[in-house]
Amino acid sequence: MKWYLAAALAGYTQAALRFGCSTVSIQRLDPVVEPGRIPSAHVHQIVGGNAFNATMNGDIGEEGTCTTCTFSEDFSNYWTAVMYFKHTNGTYKRVPIMQNTALPNGINGGMTIYYTQQDFNSNGNQKITAFPKGFRMTVGSPTTDSLNQKKNVGLRFVCLQDKGTRFPELPDFPTKPCKGGIMTVHHFPSCWDGKNLDSPNHQDHMYSTTKDAFQAAGPCPASHPVRMPQLAYETLWDTAQFKDMWPKDGSNPFTLSYGDDKGYGTHADYLFGWKGDSLQKAMDSNCMFNACENGRPLKSQGVAAMNACKAKKAITEDVDGWLKAMPGQ
């Protein structure tokens, strides 16, 4: 039935990318929200191309010399706020990230990136248009200070029992120690206005019809008619290493790098940088996950090459030791 449906859809095929990207940098830079500012307001965890800098314009796919992502044609940058542990003595320690169990072993602090047509269980039924050169967007906002259903859609936390845990999805920080760590999930909107590569708030050129988890998104509205890939990040934070330092009063000791211990303002940024038409080729194919590697249709690289790629440091400051305050706060 699936094969018959795929044929009937005349080229609208099932395609889903799931791949790892090791860390390219951890520093206070944000070329989307705070272009040109050195340093930016808070620390970010960044993966992708090594051209990452305070100012990024033009065709990012032609910038840089390497990428930390599995697909060697992907020079995009993906980033989120860093998570910190706050000790009862008032000092802060950066929480390291760890690789998803579905990814190859040895990835250095990797995030998991998804580009999907529809979901993981059925064929896509519409044309998916790849992001154009120069495209960028954000999801969520660090200024969100309450559970707002509209602003928090697609932004979730998972209390991990192990790296394979995916449910339940929570709208804010878990309120108890998590045996396997904490996962943050960021689902971006996938409906584009077809005109603007960006917008003043980095969100209005997109419209979200996202549903929880990896369910098929709803139809795009007339104002934003172009269906683009459903982009999502999964970031696994190794909070379990702090389990013996949990506050005696049971309060949550984790905070995001802009000073949010509730998680309401969790957010993520995206800057498109795939080379040529490589992402469009993937969205026009019927490959799923690692079946898209090794030229089928995307070029790929090994873990050693991913881990070796690094962006230049623009700021010299300690983001890793026990700190009296989080950088910028």
Rank of each mutant, 00 (worst) to 15 (best):
Q118N: 05
I97V: 15
A282S: 02
K93Y: 03
G218F: 00
Y12I: 07
K133E: 13
Y270E: 01
A213Q: 06
Y92D: 06
C159G: 08
R227G: 00
K195L: 06
F167N: 15
P132Q: 03
Y12F: 10
H44A: 07
S146T: 14
P200F: 13
R296V: 07
F19M: 10
N294P: 00
P39H: 01
P221I: 05
G276N: 09
K93G: 02
T91V: 10
A314I: 04
K324P: 10
D244S: 14
I113K: 03
Q149G: 10
S278C: 02
P247K: 01
R296M: 06
T101A: 15
C159F: 03
S22Q: 07
N53C: 08
T266P: 02
G20I: 04
H87Q: 13
I46S: 00
K195H: 03
K211N: 10
L9G: 08
A10R: 15
T165F: 01
Q301L: 02
M206W: 05
G49I: 12
N100V: 06
N152G: 15
P168M: 09
I38D: 11
Y207E: 08
G20H: 08
P247S: 03
A15S: 15
R156F: 05
P189S: 10
N152I: 11
F157E: 07
R94C: 04
C287W: 03
T80D: 10
V319R: 04
T175E: 03
Q117S: 12
T80L: 11
F173S: 04
P200Q: 13
Q301K: 05
D172K: 09
V24E: 14
P253W: 03
T144N: 14
I182P: 01
V185H: 01
I97A: 13
K211I: 08
Y258E: 06
W192K: 11
G20L: 08
K248C: 00
E293R: 07
Q161C: 00
S285R: 06
H44Q: 06
T144G: 02
Q117I: 06
W274E: 10
S223F: 00
C66D: 12
A130W: 01
G259A: 04
T184E: 11
V33W: 09
A54M: 09
T13K: 15
V139K: 11
F19T: 05
A10M: 11
T70D: 11
G181K: 08
R18D: 06
V82E: 14
V24K: 07
